[in-house]
């Protein structure tokens, strides 16, 4: 399972069979709170995809070139968090400086996802599953796109849901969680197709 196509397999697996949100239930807080509108969901989804793809690469480098040689791999939690937070803030500053349109569409969401658990989760899975650099990148990119897919699907459903008669006690987070569970069940149909460790 380590052929030349492995990074590609990881990419598709991260989107469908091992969707970070629907199989691991990571990144739920922003998923629940921002999935009200398709437009904002797309902005947040893009931001998550970008941050996941870049921070997995950064964290891979930090892990393999700093932490492992020094036998400090048990410090990966704290180091990964700091790297992600600093990187996201830096990107926000740069985007705000260079592109107004990009800032309005994407940059405004970056502070929301600095402490998103899905982003830390992707970096940690990459270590547990012992991916190489390329696979880590495709895993990060795929996980981001998988998250994007999940939140877009949810936003679409919730826009229809606005016209539905939801029982009073289930309005808001309640019905959203139930729908997330159903979506997760649907995604279980993909399970077993690709095994990525």
């Amino acid at each position: 399972m380590n052929g030349p196509l492995f990074p590609l397999a990881v990419f598709f697996a991260a989107i469908f069979t091992s969707n970070i949100l629907l199989t691991n239930f990571l990144g739920m807080c922003s998923f629940l709170s921002v999935s009200r509108e398709i437009k904002t969901s797309a902005g947040l989804g893009t931001a998550v995809t970008f941050v996941m793809a870049t921070t997995t690469v950064l964290n891979w480098l930090v892990y393999h070139y700093i932490l492992l040689p020094l036998e400090l791999d048990y410090l990966r939690f704290i180091v990964f968090i700091v790297v992600i937070a600093a990187f996201v803030q830096l990107v926000e500053m740069v985007i705000e400086r260079v592109s107004e349109g990009l800032y309005a569409a994407l940059g405004i969401f970056l502070p929301l996802i600095t402490v998103n658990c899905a982003i830390l989760g992707v970096s940690l899975f990459m270590v547990i599953r012992d991916y190489d650099l390329l696979s880590s990148f495709t895993f990060g990119l795929g996980s981001g796109l998988g998250w994007f897919l999940a939140i877009m699907a949810m936003a679409g459903i919730r826009q229809k849901l606005a016209k539905a008669r939801v029982p009073k006690g289930l309005e808001g987070a309640g019905i959203t969680l139930i729908i997330t569970g159903m979506m997760a069940l649907a995604f279980m149909g993909f399970s077993g197709m690709i095994n990525i460790g």
Partner: peptide, 12 residues
Amino acid sequence: TFLISVGAVSAI
């Protein structure tokens, strides 16, 4: 070990 771990985290 103590010095290396503290040093590495501080440096980063």
